[in-house]
């Protein structure tokens, strides 16, 4: 398990709150589980994770101090 810093955008920021959030997880799947446990509302939301500004579509290992962004789709125009 490593400690990562989270940044959330859009609707997800409303769920995660304004305070800087750190969570412990070994990989991105583990991080999603930890997030869902802490914020059950996230379960039904669509978003992608960007680890150190790189969008990931498969499970990857996290490194200590990584920044993970939660990016939801926006539709407005």
């Amino acid at each position: 398990m490593v400690k990562v810093k989270l940044i959330a955008f859009g609707q997800l920021a409303e769920i995660l709150g304004d305070d800087e959030l750190n969570l412990n997880a070994a990989d991105t799947n583990g991080l999603k589980d930890a997030l869902n446990q802490r914020f059950p509302e996230l379960k039904n939301k669509k978003y992608v994770l960007a680890v150190n500004k790189q969008v990931v579509s498969i499970n990857i290992l996290l490194t200590e101090g990584a920044t993970v962004a939660l990016l939801p789709p926006f539709s407005g125009g």
């Binding site: 940044i7 960007a50 500004k53 790189q54 969008v55 990016l71």
Partner: peptide, 11 residues
């Protein structure tokens, strides 16, 4: 905040 995209094989 700019992130890099990659091909998603499932897409």
């Amino acid at each position: 905040y700019t992130v890099q995209l990659q091909e998603n094989p499932e897409a």
